[in-house]
Amino acid sequence: MAFFYQVWSIYTFHIVATLLIYLFLLFVNKNFFDKTGFAFLAGSVIKMMAAVVFLIPLIKADVNDPIIDVTAFFIPYFLFLFFETFFAIRLINNR
């Protein structure tokens, strides 16, 4: 079975997005501690929009079974979202 996206491209997207959100949260937590939760929400919304943009070629393509490809994308998406949430909670609770 061949996926629409290469597995490495899916994980590269998730790793880069998560790393950018981590760095953004660290910056906001250091400079504007009381806005860390809002920064996490903003980063999550931007990541969701980036995921939709990433998946547009899959949506527009004529794929026989897109559910498998979407599942291959969203299982790691929610795993990385869990790590981001855990990190954000630790940042907020440390002060």
Score class of each variant (00 low, 15 high):
A51N: 06
A51V: 02
V52D: 12
V52H: 08
V52G: 10
V53Q: 13
V53Y: 13
F54H: 04
F54Q: 00
F54D: 01
L55V: 03
L55A: 14
L55S: 08
I56P: 00
I56V: 15
P57G: 06
P57Q: 09
P57I: 04
L58F: 05
L58C: 08
L58A: 12
I59M: 11
I59W: 09
K60L: 05
K60E: 11
D62F: 06
D62N: 13
D62G: 08
V63C: 11
V63K: 01
V63A: 12
V63S: 05
V63R: 01
N64I: 06
N64Y: 05
N64A: 13
D65F: 13
D65R: 14
D65H: 13
P66Q: 06
I67H: 14
I68N: 11
V70F: 13
V70H: 03
T71E: 10
T71K: 09
T71F: 05
T71N: 09
A72Y: 11
A72K: 10
F74A: 01
F74D: 03
F74Y: 15
I75N: 08
P76W: 12
P76T: 12
Y77K: 00
Y77C: 00
F78R: 02
F78A: 04
L79K: 07
F80S: 02
L81Q: 07
L81D: 09
F82L: 15
F83H: 10
E84V: 12
E84W: 07
E84N: 14
E84F: 12
E84L: 15
T85H: 07
T85P: 00
F86V: 10
F86C: 03
F87H: 03
F87S: 03
F87Q: 09
F87I: 10
F87R: 06
A88P: 03
A88H: 04
A88F: 03
A88V: 10
I89M: 13
R90V: 02
R90T: 02
R90N: 08
I92V: 08
N93S: 14
